[in-house]
Amino acid sequence: MKKFFITAFLLTSAIVGANAQLLPSLQFGVKAGLNFSSLKSDNEKYLDASTRTGYQAGVWARIGGAGVHFQPELYVTGKSSEAKLVEQNEEGKVSFTSLDLPLLLGTRIGMGPAGLRIVAGPVVSFVVDKNIANTFTEQVLNVDDYKNQAWAVTGGLGLDISNFRVDLRYEHGLSELSKNDSAPQKLNLWTVGVGYRLF
């Protein structure tokens, strides 16, 4: 009888432990990083843009257990680009400050405190500030020519080491930022971020 109870206890513990791995979990943390963005026109005849360095800072959450997880994030992001208007032969700087909301699906490879993550999903950006350097005349390019909301898709790799997080992603702009149909523009960027899990 004693052996029966020991066997039953061990079996029950194993089943509970296995089910616990499948239960949804919640993580929350902070993150900061750099982005390397460029503003491109589709035909490359209107706008020739070089990459510039920006920033991002905010929070993230991760919901899910083993297998697939959902990871919403919210950042304040500064994006900028050195731009040259090809036809007008004028150069200047275009910059945006936005609230970015990535809604990511991902999976984690690895057990315990270390693991590799793969994530992808849409990003919606709400522009809160726009600035165009004075070298661009208002007749050529004006802040009012840019929309206040944009969509993009992002994907990349992440590494978990204990409570620390490192991410490398590429974000491809889907929305035309310019209201001027004759001057279509999209913003593409790479991001490198470091995060910390609070709980």
Rank of each mutant, 00 (worst) to 15 (best):
E82D: 15
D167K: 04
G156I: 00
D160A: 03
Q71H: 10
G193Y: 02
E82R: 13
P122Y: 00
V68E: 04
A61D: 03
A152E: 12
E91P: 00
K2V: 10
N148F: 03
L101H: 01
T53Y: 03
L177P: 07
G92D: 05
A18K: 08
V192A: 10
G67W: 09
L198V: 11
E73P: 08
G78D: 08
V143L: 02
A66G: 09
I6F: 12
A32S: 10
E176G: 13
Q88Y: 14
D144W: 01
R197P: 03
S178E: 10
P184N: 12
L174F: 12
L99E: 09
A32G: 13
I132Q: 08
V140R: 14
Y170P: 04
S81A: 15
P113K: 08
G156H: 04
V143D: 14
N134T: 13
F28M: 09
R197V: 00
T135R: 04
V16K: 02
E171S: 10
T107C: 05
L22R: 15
L105R: 02
P184S: 13
N180F: 12
Y196A: 06
F9G: 11
Y146M: 05
L177V: 02
V153R: 04
Q21M: 12
N19C: 14
K3A: 14
L174P: 08
G110A: 01
D167F: 01
G155L: 00
N163C: 08
F4A: 15
F9Y: 08
N142K: 14
V86G: 05
V30Y: 01
R197D: 03
A114P: 07
N142D: 15
L34Y: 07
R197F: 00
F36I: 02
L159Y: 05
D181R: 12
N142W: 08
E138V: 08
L22H: 14
F126S: 06
T107P: 01
V192K: 00
T97R: 03
G29C: 02
S98D: 04
R117I: 07
L187Q: 06
S98R: 04
V124R: 10
E82N: 15
V192E: 03
P24K: 07
E91V: 06
N163T: 02
I63F: 09
E138Q: 10
L26C: 09
H69A: 11
K3M: 13
L39Q: 07
E82I: 11
G33I: 03
T107V: 04
T12P: 02
L22F: 11
Q21F: 15
